[in-house]
Design a protein around this nucleic acid. Structure first.
Lengths: 112, 112
DNA sequence: TTTCGTTATTTCCGTAAGGAAATAACGCCA
DNA sequence: TGGCGTTATTTCCTTACGGAAATAACGAAA
């Protein structure tokens, strides 16, 4: 009978539009580590196009940009996660922590 | 700054496969009301193919079929939601009720 | 045995999403 | 001023998804 589980998905919306999800937050972290969108995309095994679009819409929705991009210059440029970006990462991860607790308790209810 | 909300999605898995979600439960209800897959699909504004596939995989995953289908006969046949199907509907709706409470409380946290 | 309306199944097609790749733009630095 | 490596943007193509529709199967009832 068993092997029944609960699936769930959480994200944050801004003005009704998709703003922060699991993939985007991981991308932000990868950018923080590498200092580059293209390198982050490679780590995420994601096309540069998708990575760039994700970051572009995130930046557009946020009150302050989550990352600062630099084109040209030493090393060709790069991308840095801003203070606002760090806040966004933290905000999402808190949500996920709380949701994990909820889903686990709900799963136990199922087992009964 | 505001207009920031939490989005969420919940479903029930069986053996790691998608079993019950919002659409499927609504479909079950529509079948219960109409006694027919095709009529239910029409109400749901869903193709018959998708409705049939949904119901078929649900039935295959469940220990007992959620609906009983009859081909041919009086009126051409029809489909009836079983007792097991009623339980499934109830199970999912309880999950949704609890999740709604959680998401609302989490949204209030955001506002702070 | 014919009719009927449903379930069951297949085939075909349009559309949308996303990836790959080519190319432009950029600005520091040697 | 040319090289470099990144960001920025466009173009093209493939693939997957799902819908529409055609058709078969079915069994009760007249």
């Amino acid at each position: 009978m068993q092997d029944i589980t609960i699936g769930s998905k959480f994200w944050i919306e801004k003005n009704g539009q998709f703003f922060l999800g699991k993939g985007r937050v991981e991308l932000l972290k990868a950018v923080r580590e590498t200092g580059s969108i293209s390198a982050a995309a490679k780590i995420m095994n994601m096309s540069y196009k998708k990575a760039w679009e994700s970051i572009d819409t995130m930046n557009a929705l946020a009150d302050q940009p989550l990352v600062e991009r630099k084109t040209g210059g030493k090393g060709g440029g790069g991308t840095v996660v801003t203070e606002e970006g760090e806040k966004a990462i933290q905000l999402y991860e808190e949500l996920i922590q709380n949701s994990t607790v909820f889903v686990e308790s709900e799963t136990e209810m199922l087992a009964q």
